[in-house]
Structures are given as C-alpha cells and as structure tokens.
C-alpha cells in the first residue's frame, strides 16, 4: 500500500519546497553575494574584511567566548549531570525539569536579569561597595565577563541535557568496579566516564559552541557596542552603515564556523580510540 513512491514524494514535497524557496534560496543568494565584487567572482571581500583590526578582534573574541562557554559548561555540566543521574527517580525528574525550564523562557527575559545583577546599581556592585572593596561601582556590564556569564546561563542547560542522556546509558557497575580496582576519582573520570559519554559531550559541545557563536541578544544587551561579537557586528554593518557586503561576509563566516564545528566534532565523536 505504501509502494507508491510518487504519492509519498508528493506528501513530503510541500515542506521541502517551502523551506527551499522561502528559506534556503534567499540565504543562498545572500551567501553568494559575499564572493562577488565588481560583477565577478572574487575572494577580495574576505581579504579586505580580515585585514581590518577591528574585524580580527571581533572574530577572535567570538571564537574565544564560544570556546570558553563550551569548556566551562562542560565542567559544570559533568558535575551536575553526574549528580542528577545518581538521584532517586522522583527528585531526578524534578531537578531535570528545573534545568530544562529556562530553555522555554524568552532569551530576552533571561538576559535582562543580568542587567539587574551586574549593573552599576546591581546586586554585585551593591555587595562590592557594601563590603568596602571599592568606593565606586565597577564596570561589569558591557564587558566580556558579562557576555560570558549571560551565554553560560543561556546554554548550560543544553550541555547538562546532553550529558545526562548519555550518562543514563553508563553501566553503573563500571564505576564501582573501577573503584574496587583502586582507581581514584580522576582516573574513574578519564578512563571510564569520559570515554563512555564522549558522544554526549560532543553533542552538547556543538550545541553550546555554535549557540554562543550565533547568539545575538546576549552580546547585544550585555556587551553593547563595547564588546562586539560577529552577530552584533553583522547587525551594526546593516543597520548603521548599510554595508551589505560585509554583512554577507560575516554571514558566510558564521555558517562556515557552524558547519565546520558540526563536522569536526562529529568526526571526533566517531573516531576510534
């Protein structure tokens, strides 16, 4: 009854056409624009773009923050995921729900909270002045630290979820067995937990890293014009200077970085020891 290939194709086609025409086509044209200069194909746009110090700074900062957020979320993620997996089923569901919850809430709301915390009259500055550590409020908002914290809070749940689901398949006895054989916790982690949860780490790492690279709201609200990242730079190029070519170039770089990360980390995950 389901041998009619045309019938099946016809059912799947509208979705593919919708995305193909209204989504991929415009994006494709936009990307191809980055390779065109004076009517011909050229990489000159990229060379010009990369040669500007500001662009280099933004590019490196984006990479650095993405990497830092991924690394720190991996550390916190492992600790939290390990604790969650070892809870009894009831509190495990509850805690897991609380970890997932922030993902359902508007990133604007999630980022906005950090203004209250890190601003000149925020909680942190109140504490610093109250403790006599400084007479005047120190600037935390609009620094890389603020952006880092915002991104970490935004993407940490993704890392925890990935690690929890890969740890659920971890044979409980393996850890006990290693402990009995005299391994310390560091050895248990590097020799047993890490190899067995590699896939979860890679999956979480990809989500967090590419998420951080392409986040807009967090750098826009917490970094402002002082801490530009590629996304905010792209927005600036279009809205302030109407520079569509630079915008296309940044777009290409972003997409290349996302695809590159996806491929690279997938290869690492499937590589043999």
């Amino acid at each position: 009854m389901f041998q009619n290939r045309k019938e099946g194709f016809a059912l799947a086609l509208p979705a593919a056409l919708f995305i193909g025409i209204l989504f991929l086509l415009p994006v494709g044209i936009l990307l191809s624009e980055a390779f065109q200069l004076d009517g011909g194909w050229s990489l000159q746009g990229y060379i010009d773009f990369i040669s500007k110090p500001l662009n280099q700074t933004v590019f490196l900062r984006t990479l650095k923050l993405g990497f830092l957020v991924a690394a720190v979320s991996a550390v916190i993620g492992y600790a939290s995921a390990f604790c969650i997996v070892n809870l009894d089923p009831k509190s495990r569901g509850r805690i897991f729900g609380m970890v997932v919850l922030p993902l359902m809430i508007s990133p604007v709301a999630r980022t906005y909270a950090w203004i209250v915390i890190l601003g000149r009259t925020g909680i942190v500055n109140d504490a610093i002045i109250g403790l006599g550590l400084s007479d005047t409020p120190i600037r935390i908002l609009f620094t890389e630290t603020a952006v880092f914290l915002g991104l970490l809070q935004l993407f940490l749940p993704l890392m925890i979820i990935s690690l929890v689901s890969s740890m659920e398949n971890l044979p409980r006895d393996a850890i006990s067995a290693a402990r009995v054989l005299g391994a310390n916790w560091l050895q248990v982690f590097t020799k047993i937990i890490l190899p067995l949860t590699k896939e979860g780490l890679v999956m979480g790492g990809t989500l967090v890293f590419t998420g951080s690279l392409t986040a807009y709201i967090t750098p826009a609200i917490l970094g402002g014009a002082k801490v530009l990242m590629l996304e905010t730079l792209l927005y600036q190029k279009v809205s302030v200077s109407n520079d569509y070519v630079s915008a296309s170039i940044i777009a290409t770089i972003l997409i290349a970085m996302c695809f590159g990360t996806n491929l690279l980390l997938k290869r690492i995950a499937t590589a043999r020891e």
């Binding site: 044209i29 936009l30 392409t214 996304e231 927005y235």
Partner: peptide, 27 residues
Amino acid sequence: YEIPYAETIKTIVAAPIIVPGIIVGLA
C-alpha cells in the same frame, strides 16, 4: 514510504535549525 531523495528532503527540512537566524532575517 520509500520516497526518492528522502535524505535530501530531510536535509532541506532540517536546514533552518543550523542556519543562524540573523542571516535568515537579512536574506
């Protein structure tokens, strides 16, 4: 169904997850 180009269709349909949103808006 065993439909022709199933993998291509899957890739196309999944594309919006991978392409950064800001680029879509601009395009």
